[in-house]
């Protein structure tokens, strides 16, 4: 068993419990064991960096330093928002030694720079072979891989994949037998930042993502971020209302999709927690790959019904 540091953040203990559950379910099959960061705190995402710059760095810095003190070098951060904060913090602290000293002063802990946060896609990509080997029931579905904004932006700091057209998740889904569709909204904004202030706009933005995924023939949308999931799954009724349609396409965390391919039970993967039922068109065996030039018009009626 390889041990790896783990920072779940608040989402994975709350709204995204199934993300945590599915992750913990698939890890033993890949020979990985999680070591929790001791006494962790909020990463500050979504509010701190809007309000107080020092606080927005000190919160993640404290977590990074505690993890370093525990001897953690690789730290898995499944939540894309947390991951983004960690990478941004490391970037800023490395750029500015005065700031680094100031932050160390605030947290009372010295950040040494030995720790390396990993997002879920990086983590799984490194273990593609293990994932492949553990695949028992190939996930033969057309899937739209939705990366959202936080994993790839800003590109000069995140330095993850190709910022406008990332491929890591598509490759991983291919590895478990799925057929990633070519679609246009891979990194489009879901509106998470406006969740509280302007929910109607979120319905519209997220709705466009679902619309394009369905039009491209996707039978499931795969995500790697609790905020993306919340918007595409939890807000489905608002989305449907705004669109005047009834989209039924399920939204799965990549860990859940991989878990299904490994033959794990729905309950183990927390699929029952979703608001949009995880159901696939039953009659389709091996999924047909629609090309980008001809959006699979035939799959559309199966996915949407006029409300």
């Amino acid at each position: 068993m390889t041990k790896i540091g783990y920072y779940p953040g608040c989402s994975l203990l709350g709204t995204a419990r199934e993300y945590d559950e599915s992750l913990r379910a698939i890890l033993p099959r890949m020979g990985v064991e999680l070591v929790d960061v001791p006494d962790w705190n909020c990463c500050g995402a979504s509010s701190a960096h809007m309000l107080n710059h020092e606080l927005s760095l000190s919160l993640p810095a404290r977590i990074l330093s505690s993890a370093e003190n525990k001897g953690i070098t690789d730290m898995l951060v499944p939540c894309a928002a947390c991951y983004n904060r960690f990478v941004m913090t490391i970037h800023e602290l490395n750029e500015d030694s005065k700031l680094r000293a100031r932050v160390a002063d605030i947290t009372g802990l010295d950040y040494r720079g030995t720790i390396h946060p990993l997002n879920i896609l990086e983590f799984l990509e490194k273990r593609t072979d293990a994932v492949k080997a553990a695949t028992a029931l190939p996930f033969e579905r057309n899937v739209a891989c939705y990366y959202g904004c936080l994993l790839v932006r800003p590109p000069t700091v995140m330095k993850f994949d190709r910022s406008e057209d990332p491929r890591t998740m598509d490759d991983l889904m291919s590895a478990v037998g799925a057929n990633p569709v070519d679609w246009a909204f891979k990194v489009e904004c879901c509106g998470a930042g406006l969740s509280i202030t302007s929910p109607a706009l979120v319905g519209k933005l997220s709705g466009r993502i679902i619309e394009n995924a369905v039009k491209s023939g996707a039978e499931a949308i795969i995500v790697a971020c609790p905020l993306c999931h919340a918007n595409l799954d939890m807000r489905r009724s608002a989305i449907n209302k705004a669109a005047g349609k009834k989209y039924t396409v399920p939204v799965l965390y990549i860990t859940q999709a991989v878990g299904l391919a490994m033959g794990l039970k729905e309950k183990e993967l927390g699929l029952h927690r979703h608001l949009v039922k995880v159901r696939f068109p039953a009659d389709r065996g091996a999924a047909q790959a629609p090309t980008h030039a001809q959006p699979a018009a035939d799959s559309e009626p199966a996915q949407t019904e006029e409300a």
Binding site: A184, E188, A293, P295
Partner: peptide, 11 residues
């Protein structure tokens, strides 16, 4: 910001 294909048109 983006160009994508939809219904035979480039959006």
């Amino acid at each position: 910001s983006r160009i994508y294909e939809e219904d035979g048109k480039l959006v």
